[in-house]
C-alpha cells in the first residue's frame, strides 16, 4: 500500500464507522453525552456550582476517553462476533491503518459531545489561545492513549462480554479515581499517590490549568506533559508489539 492508499483507507474506515452510524442511528450520539453530562450535573449540584468548570474540563476528557472504551467494544465485537477483523486481515489493509481508521471514527463520533462541552466552556469562561491549544493538545494525547489501551485490550478478549468488565475497571482507573472532575487537593493526602498512578491525572491537571482553575508552575507543566506523552508512547508501543493481528 502506498501512503496515499493508507490515508484513503483510514478515511474510508473513519467514514464507515463514524459518519454512517451517526446517520443511521442519531440517538446513539446521546449515549456519548450521557456519562459526561451526568458527572457534570452531579459535580455542579454537589459543589453548589463551584466545580462547574472542573466538570466542563472533566467532561471533555471523559468524552475523549470514552473513545477508548467504544473502540475496545467495537474492536472486540468486530473481531469475535462479526469476524470483520478477519475480513480486513485478509486484505491489503495493515493493522495500524485499521486501528487508526477505527480510532478516528470513534473520535468523529464523539465530536458532537466535545462540541457541547466547548460551547458550555466558552459560555462560562472563555480561554485564551494558549489555553485552547493546550486543551486541544491534551485531548489529542488522551485520544492516542485511550486508543492504544482500547486496541490492546480488545485483541485479547475471546468474547465481547469480557470487554464490559474491563471497560468498567478502565473507567474506574482513568476517570473516577484521578481528579478529572475535581481538584487533586480534594483527594486525601494519604491516598493521593494512587491518583498519580493514572496518566489521566496529569491530563486533568493540564486541562484545569488551561481553564485557569489551577496555577501550574513551569516545572509541573513539564512533568505533566512528560508523563502524559511517555505513557501514551508506552501504551502505543505495547499496542504495536502485543496486539494480535494474526491469531497465534
Amino acid at each position: 500500500m502506498t501512503e496515499r492508499h493508507r490515508l484513503r483507507s483510514v478515511l474510508w474506515l473513519a467514514y464507515m464507522n463514524g459518519i454512517v452510524p451517526m446517520r443511521t442511528q442519531p440517538l446513539y450520539l446521546l449515549s456519548i453525552l450521557a456519562s459526561p453530562l451526568s458527572f457534570l450535573f452531579f459535580v455542579t449540584v454537589a459543589s453548589g456550582g463551584t466545580l462547574f468548570l472542573y466538570g466542563i474540563a472533566g467532561g471533555m476528557l471523559l468524552t475523549v476517553l470514552s473513545v477508548g472504551t467504544s473502540l475496545q467494544t467495537d474492536m472486540s465485537h468486530y473481531r469475535t462476533d462479526l469476524k470483520f477483523q478477519d475480513v480486513i486481515v485478509a486484505s491489503p489493509v495493515e493493522a495500524p491503518v485499521y486501528v487508526v481508521g477505527i480510532a478516528l471514527s470513534e473520535l468523529i463520533y464523539s465530536l458532537p459531545g466535545i462540541a457541547v462541552f466547548i460551547a458550555l466552556g466558552a459560555w462560562e469562561a472563555p480561554v485564551a489561545l494558549v489555553g485552547a491549544v493546550t486543551i486541544f493538545a491534551v485531548l489529542l494525547m488522551v485520544w492516542a492513549l485511550a486508543t492504544a489501551l482500547g486496541f490492546t485490550l480488545a485483541t485479547f478478549f475471546a468474547d465481547v462480554r469480557e470487554t464490559f468488565v474491563f471497560s468498567s475497571l478502565v473507567s474506574l482507573g482513568l476517570t473516577v479515581l484521578p481528579p478529572v472532575y475535581y481538584p487533586i487537593s480534594a483527594i486525601p493526602a494519604s491516598v493521593r499517590w494512587l491518583a498519580y498512578l493514572s496518566p489521566t491525572t496529569y491530563a486533568a491537571m493540564l486541562m484545569q490549568g488551561a481553564f485557569g482553575l489551577q496555577h501550574l508552575t513551569f516545572s509541573s507543566q513539564v512533568i505533566d506533559w512528560a508523563v502524559l506523552i511517555l505513557s501514551s508512547l508506552a501504551l502505543l508501543s505495547i499496542a504495536a508489539l502485543k496486539a494480535r493481528w494474526r491469531d497465534p
Binding site: N17, D81, K83
Partner: peptide
C-alpha cells in the same frame, strides 16, 4: 470467514462499496 456477518449499520451498497474503497 465462517460465520462472519456484515456490519449491521450499513446498507447493502455501502457494505460492498466501503469494503472495496477500504481495500484501496
Amino acid at each position: 470467514p465462517q460465520e462472519s456477518r456484515p456490519l449491521y449499520f450499513l446498507n447493502v451498497f455501502e457494505l460492498i462499496y466501503l469494503y472495496l474503497t477500504i481495500r484501496g
